[in-house]
Simulated scan of single mutants.
Amino acid sequence: MNDPRLRASDADRQRVVADLERHTAAGRLSLDEFSTRVDAVLAARTHGDLGQVVGDLPPEARPSADARHLLVAFAVAAVVVALLAVIISVYR
């Protein structure tokens, strides 16, 4: 997060709620803990307030850049295979 004294935006709050959803899905938070923390996020005014809500959770719940790169590579490979299939069918 940025300077803890800066005001948090709605987008900042939404990002933290999404992080809490991922942590809950991973089993790090119970539904009661999730609910309590979401209430705290919605009441947060600064980045410092948001940081306190997720300070005890590991940062790796966010999808990694490697996963995004793998998805892009898979999509490119699928397009190449489709193009090759079209080219082969045209020249047969």
Rank of each mutant, 00 (worst) to 15 (best):
V38Q: 03
E21H: 07
L84C: 15
D39G: 06
A40L: 07
R68Q: 12
T24F: 01
L6I: 12
L84W: 13
V80P: 06
H47I: 01
E33K: 06
V79M: 14
A73E: 14
V76D: 15
G48E: 05
M1R: 06
A67D: 15
R22I: 10
F34W: 00
V38N: 00
Q14R: 15
V53D: 01
Q14G: 12
L31T: 09
H23A: 13
G48F: 07
Q14P: 08
E60V: 09
M1C: 11
S30C: 10
G55E: 12
V41C: 08
R28A: 13
E21F: 01
F74K: 11
D3N: 14
F34K: 02
V81Y: 07
E33R: 04
T36W: 01
A40P: 02
E21S: 02
A77E: 11
D49S: 05
F34Y: 10
V41A: 09
A67W: 11
L71E: 13
A75L: 14
S35T: 03
V53R: 00
A40T: 00
D49M: 02
T36Q: 05
V72T: 12
R37N: 01
G51W: 06
V41L: 09
S30I: 00
D12I: 02
Y91I: 15
H23K: 09
V86R: 09
D10H: 11
A73S: 14
D32H: 02
A73G: 13
A25D: 09
Q14M: 15
A25F: 09
V80A: 13
L31W: 03
R15F: 04
Y91K: 10
S35E: 00
L71W: 07
V17Y: 00
M1F: 12
T36P: 03
V41K: 03
S64W: 07
D10P: 05
S30A: 10
V17C: 04
L71H: 11
D49Q: 00
R7D: 15
E33Q: 02
D12M: 08
V90H: 14
A11H: 08
A25E: 06
A78C: 14
D66F: 11
H23T: 14
F74A: 14
P59R: 14
E60D: 15
S35R: 03
R5Q: 08
V86D: 10
V41D: 01
L31M: 14
V53Q: 01
R45H: 11
A8D: 08
V86A: 10
P58R: 09
F34G: 00
Y91W: 13
Q14H: 15
E33L: 01
S30M: 06
I87A: 15
F74S: 13
S9A: 02
S89H: 12
V86P: 05
V86W: 07
V81A: 11
R5L: 08
A8Y: 08
T46W: 04
L29M: 07
S9W: 03
S64R: 02
E33N: 03
H47K: 00
A26V: 09
L20E: 05
S30P: 07
D12F: 05
A61P: 05
G48Q: 04
S64F: 06
A73I: 15
A18E: 10
R22M: 10
D39P: 04
